[in-house]
Amino acid sequence: MTDHQDDIVPARYPGRWIAALICIAIAGFIVASMLQNPGYQWPVVLKYMTAATILKGFAWTIGLTAAAMTIGIVLGIIAALMRQSANPVLATVAALYIWLFRGVPLLVQLIFWYNLAALYPTIDIGLPFFGSILSIPTNDIITPLAAALLGLGLNEGAYMAEIVRGGLISVDPGQREAAQSLGMSPAHTLRRIIIPQALRVIVPPTGNEVIGMLKATSLVSVLSISDLLYSVQGIYGRTLQTIPLLIVASIWYLAAATILTSIQRLIEKHYGRGHRSNQPDALFGLLRARRKETT
């Protein structure tokens, strides 16, 4: 009787191949339609892709995204720390801020800030019950750009607060207690122990928020700010070439989102580097360093 080894036959999944063929067929129909339909007006798309007005609008979009996200991240960190504070006043104020700006639609907030002068014609600086020292017309301060940054930044801050808070509470509370037992101050504990570990949780949703902010800046077109969408609207309002100009805007938005996604992955890889389940965390590394210093 001869020994023999049975051949291993890989499992076949016909359903996967059928689904793949269906997807390829659908994609083929879409591409063929886009190339053959004269309504897309691809020569017009190519003409305006690098037009000065479009590039200037795209620069405004990138600038608004960066500025609003900076405001949102700073406010989010402050609100998250206040939300976790043992002081009930600070925690309540942060909770109300998050509740208000997450609950009201962003477009409503932008229009509200733009029309703030209807509620407060002037902004008075002074002491309560002693009159104002300086009075400035509200419209001189709340320009369309200021209204856009207030609306985008305050709204983003509410979302970032929950993202940061989620990252902070993801760290084992025992590490904070152990750090305090070593005599570390709360600020030192937060900076050296909590935040480095929380960043692994905070970075991915923050990257999504940046891409979301990129698209949300299109709403400032209602404030007559010359962002990418407003620039496109101005052109097709004159030429009546609506579809090709919207394609131009879509291509630029997709290009920016692709670059931001790549940057997000690099940052995630950086903060995820060295994070292994079998490696000591930051606190145990610090404890070991302290032990070496004392011996």
Rank of each mutant, 00 (worst) to 15 (best):
M1V: 14
T2D: 15
T2P: 15
P10I: 07
R12I: 14
G15M: 12
R16E: 14
W17Q: 11
I18N: 06
A20D: 05
A20V: 13
L21R: 03
I22W: 05
I26C: 08
A32V: 02
S33H: 02
S33C: 00
L35S: 04
L35E: 01
N37P: 02
N37C: 01
N37G: 01
G39F: 00
Q41C: 00
W42F: 03
K47V: 00
A51N: 15
I54C: 00
L55G: 05
A59C: 06
T61K: 09
A67C: 13
A79T: 13
A80T: 05
M82A: 13
N87Q: 09
L90S: 09
A91H: 08
I98L: 03
W99A: 09
R102G: 07
G103D: 07
V104T: 13
V108N: 02
W113F: 15
A117F: 09
L119F: 13
P121V: 02
T122I: 08
D124N: 13
F130H: 10
I133R: 10
L134C: 02
L134S: 03
S135I: 02
I142E: 03
I142P: 06
L145N: 10
A148L: 06
L149E: 09
G151L: 07
N155T: 15
E162V: 09
I163T: 12
L168R: 02
I169Q: 12
R176M: 10
R176W: 07
Q180W: 09
H188E: 14
R191V: 15
R192P: 02
I194A: 15
L199I: 11
G207P: 08
I211A: 09
G212M: 09
M213K: 10
L214D: 04
L214N: 08
A216V: 11
A216Y: 11
S221G: 08
S224C: 10
D227K: 09
G237H: 08
Q241L: 12
P244L: 03
P244Y: 01
L260N: 04
T261M: 12
S262P: 00
Q264Y: 06
K269E: 05
G274V: 07
H275K: 13
S277Q: 14
N278E: 13
F284K: 15
L286K: 02
